[in-house]
């Protein structure tokens, strides 16, 4: 299947600070990819590079097969963009903004927009600037759905949303995407609710891409291990064991490997593995396991 998004060897600096070096990834059609990372790891930077709002130091991205440095009008109309903070032209009311956008898109579908608007408790004459963050997110989402794009790029859509709106957003999006075979590229720094939504997870850390795997694979394989005594040992950089933490009464670490393999690794270091147990994780726990708490 053709890649909807393809990025090759993206390297970028802000001043002298390296954001990432030789970043490579691609997203296939029909997938929902979540780019997760802590604040300041360059999630929005990727979105900006994808849409041609930032000149990366080197490397190239292709969106629907087209170079991001000069996206054609046709490609743009096939990409729905949600900016960080659900930014929309705030001087419009919901009728005016629909009227404005509908003129730009051949396949504009008003129904999903109005479906969503009817759920909101806003009047038709209310300006977007007077709406709550949650309401604005629904307007922004409604506009993207009406645009009916092949690819949805959502930058930090969960920001500022209370749990109700976040759930509403996720459910609506999931239903829509599943029904229409759309591709979604989204970023978030809130991981809750995400495991129901995203098919693939990309986790960014400072300066590098930590991981890019199907979400299910992470949930199935990535485990937290506990030893009920304080075992001191050092990690290698390519160790199968990650994020070692020592507590007074026990030791915690994470790994993608099976419990048998982990036991072997520990025994090779002459560590007592009698008390070794593992437990399954939520995506949020896995995220912390991979990136650490700090």
């Amino acid at each position: 299947m053709a890649a909807v998004i393809e990025c090759n060897n993206i390297t970028h600096y802000y001043g002298n600070r390296l954001i990432y070096k030789n970043l490579n990834f691609s997203v296939e059609k029909g997938k929902i990819l979540g780019l997760l990372g802590k604040n300041g790891t360059g999630k929005t930077t990727i979105i900006n590079i994808l849409n041609g709002y930032l000149k990366p130091y080197s490397g190239e991205c292709r969106l629907l097969g087209e170079d991001m440095r000069s996206l054609s009008i046709e490609t743009k109309s096939k990409v729905g963009l949600l900016l960080e903070g659900h930014v929309q032209h705030s001087y419009f009311n919901i009728v005016q903004i629909e009227k404005f956008y509908s003129r730009f898109f051949k396949d504009w579908k008003s129904e999903p927009y109005w479906d969503l608007m009817d759920k909101l408790k806003v009047t038709r004459k209310q300006k977007i600037s007077t709406m709550s963050c949650g309401q604005r997110s629904q307007v922004a989402l409604g506009l993207i759905l009406a645009q009916d794009p092949e690819l949805l790029i959502l930058d930090d859509f969960s920001m500022g949303l209370d749990p109700g709106y976040r759930r509403l957003f996720v459910d609506y999006l999931k239903e829509y995407v599943t029904a229409t075979n759309k591709t979604v590229f989204l970023t978030s720094h809130i991981i809750q609710d995400m495991e129901h939504l995203i098919d693939e997870t990309m986790i960014l850390d400072y300066g590098k891409l930590l991981l890019h795997k199907p979400t299910l694979e992470i949930l199935d394989n990535f485990k937290r291990y506990k030893l009920s005594h304080d075992a001191r040992f050092k990690l290698d950089s390519d160790d199968a064991i990650q994020n070692l933490e020592h507590f007074k009464s026990h030791t915690e670490f994470y790994s993608f490997d099976t419990i048998d393999r982990v036991r072997q690794i520990l025994q090779r270091r002459s560590i007592d593995t009698q008390t070794l147990v593992n437990e399954s994780l939520t995506l949020e726990d896995a995220f912390i396991g991979l990136t650490g708490k700090y």
Partner: peptide, 12 residues
């Protein structure tokens, strides 16, 4: 001051 890159963004 930005580093000179080979990438140029074009406005259509």
């Amino acid at each position: 001051k930005q580093q000179e890159t080979r990438n140029v963004i074009q406005l259509k």
